[in-house]
């Protein structure tokens, strides 16, 4: 039961802290805080853990805490062994969909991972907006007939005359 409480609280606080992380907190701070939270929970209640995150002021965070807590409880059978990997539920926060996974060894959280992040609401760019290789067939459609303007490296006035932009402009003069 003690270990179960620790996992629940850790998942809850990890959810909060991940939200804080997206808001700009450092990963290193998260890990330190989560470990500290876990230790505190062993001695007391799960609610203590839910207040420790730097980003815990938002309503999205409390949603995430509640969902992660219940999920952690359901998977608590394994936690009794004192180690393992646990995933929280995917929850909606104001930063997008967040799911955290924690790794516990000897009752101490050794890793916190974001399992599932999307930019559905286009705000979780801090984490998921890295540029990645893409095939030409995978980028947004580029039919000349469907565009109203053209972006390209600057052309000279002379070069403009044979540019796509000139053709569009000529059609609208």
């Amino acid at each position: 039961m003690k270990a179960r409480g620790a996992v629940s609280a850790a998942l809850a606080s990890a959810g909060i802290l991940l939200a804080g992380w997206q808001a700009g907190a450092q990963v290193a701070e998260i890990r330190r805080s989560v470990v500290a939270t876990s230790a505190g929970t062993n001695a007391g209640t799960t609610s203590g853990g839910a207040t420790s995150g730097p980003g815990s002021a938002s309503s999205g965070s409390s949603d995430s805490a509640a969902a992660a807590e219940s999920s952690g409880s359901s998977g608590a059978g394994a936690a009794a062994a004192g180690g393992g990997t646990y995933a929280g539920a995917a929850v909606q926060t104001r930063f997008g969909t967040v799911q955290v996974q924690i790794t516990v060894k000897s009752g101490v959280i050794t890793d916190v991972t974001a399992l599932h992040l999307t930019d559905d609401d286009r705000k979780s760019v801090q984490i998921s907006n890295r540029a990645a290789p893409l095939l030409r067939s995978e980028v947004l459609a580029a039919q000349s007939a469907n565009v109203q303007t053209i972006s390209g490296a600057t052309v000279t006035s002379d070069g403009y005359l044979t540019s796509l932009q000139a053709a569009i402009d000529a059609a609208n003069l």
């Binding site: 796509l164 053709a167 059609a171 609208n172």
Partner: peptide
């Protein structure tokens, strides 16, 4: 004036 690409963008002026 523009010679190469007029046909490509002809649809644009709809």
């Amino acid at each position: 004036m523009p010679q190469t690409s007029e046909s490509q963008v002809a649809m644009t002026c709809r």
